[in-house]
Design a protein around this nucleic acid. Sequence first.
DNA 1: GCTTGTTTCAAACGACCGTATGAATTTTTA
DNA 2: TAAAAATTCATACGGTCGTTTGAAACAAGC
Lengths: 208, 208
Amino acid sequence: MSTQEKILDAAEALFAEYGFVGTSLRAITQSAEVNLASVNYHFGSKEALVKAVLQRRSEPLNQSRIARLEAVIAEGNPSLEALLTAFVSPALEMTDSEDGARYIKLLARITIEPMGELRDSLNAQYEAVMTRFMPPLREHLPELSQEALLWRIHFVLGTLGYCMAGKDAVLLESQGALFEQTSAAQMIQRLVRFLCAGLRSPELDVSL
Amino acid sequence: MSTQEKILDAAEALFAEYGFVGTSLRAITQSAEVNLASVNYHFGSKEALVKAVLQRRSEPLNQSRIARLEAVIAEGNPSLEALLTAFVSPALEMTDSEDGARYIKLLARITIEPMGELRDSLNAQYEAVMTRFMPPLREHLPELSQEALLWRIHFVLGTLGYCMAGKDAVLLESQGALFEQTSAAQMIQRLVRFLCAGLRSPELDVSL
DNA sequence: GCTTGTTTCAAACGACCGTATGAATTTTTA
DNA sequence: TAAAAATTCATACGGTCGTTTGAAACAAGC
């Protein structure tokens, strides 16, 4: 394994655990068993390392989302359930592997607290995925106003983000045993069902 | 305003903006216009200050949740919508005031990334609220298995947490104008409708 | 008024941070 | 194999961190 990969792996794990500011280059290089100066040599700066850690996996993830979407579209007339499953599965299925779970945890952190420039690049990627998902989603929910639809997508992203955070989320702690033994596939089923019902709910009259 | 209050206010704002590790005592005391040493004098340590910042508002918030719940119960036969509104309103309505919004942003941060001991005390408070909400919730959803209900509450908390994070959440950035002009009351309406539909969705057969 | 207790203050401590440097080492190229 | 390029290494720099200290300023009680 190359030095850069060792650094990326160690940084990914530590960032997910302690956050970006809470993780020092010394902790990273020590965990990766490389020299302290190699981070600045290979990546330039700590900030550049953060970007590299995120970009290594975010592009494959979003491409996977789009691929899944186009697969269900190719089958013709995808259900709302199929569309949402295509959207949430790539991220949640990663939680089955140890490496993937680390990154997803990190991604959840970013989703909630985007930092500086990172937010922009993350946003750009999200937009690209969103423009693909929007039209077929709209077809299933023609009666919703644009405002209502955006709000509901907002809710969907929130729930997904929380699920990605995994066992660290608040409620899970108290009912940990129940959740531990649930596979990603089961979680996806439950999540998609919940979200589809919410999305399909008739819009309220605008009062107040 | 006492020194301690000045410190708590400044810390709350900076913690919400830059996180706990990202905020130095020097930044806090400078913003509060007090001496650097006063934090350690009045609170003992930075960690104790963090706890003090959170506890100042978390107890009133949770008491407000319980009070709202008991109010709708007192009226007799509360709808699922009324129950959920009682749960989400106290937090989301705080976002209308500047002070409240700062704290809620901070709370959202904690909800997603609970840190060390903080998680335990936060969990204890959540549990207290949950034991009050569970029974009436159960009444409305008798056909759900315990596992399914817990999962759905998990989803509810996730969506709420994301909404609390406010304008910093990812999607909002790209559609900012639309969301900026939505009041907390409108957001609560939309959120409750979405969540109730999800909660009421019939449970899947256990397959896979 | 003087004493006693509380709070503020400037200054300093050691520790750790991200980064830079130049020599030593390894790898690649000719 | 010798020269060149790329990488690793120990070390150091300036800066900021949380915390401590002891004196100064202030308040309250007798």
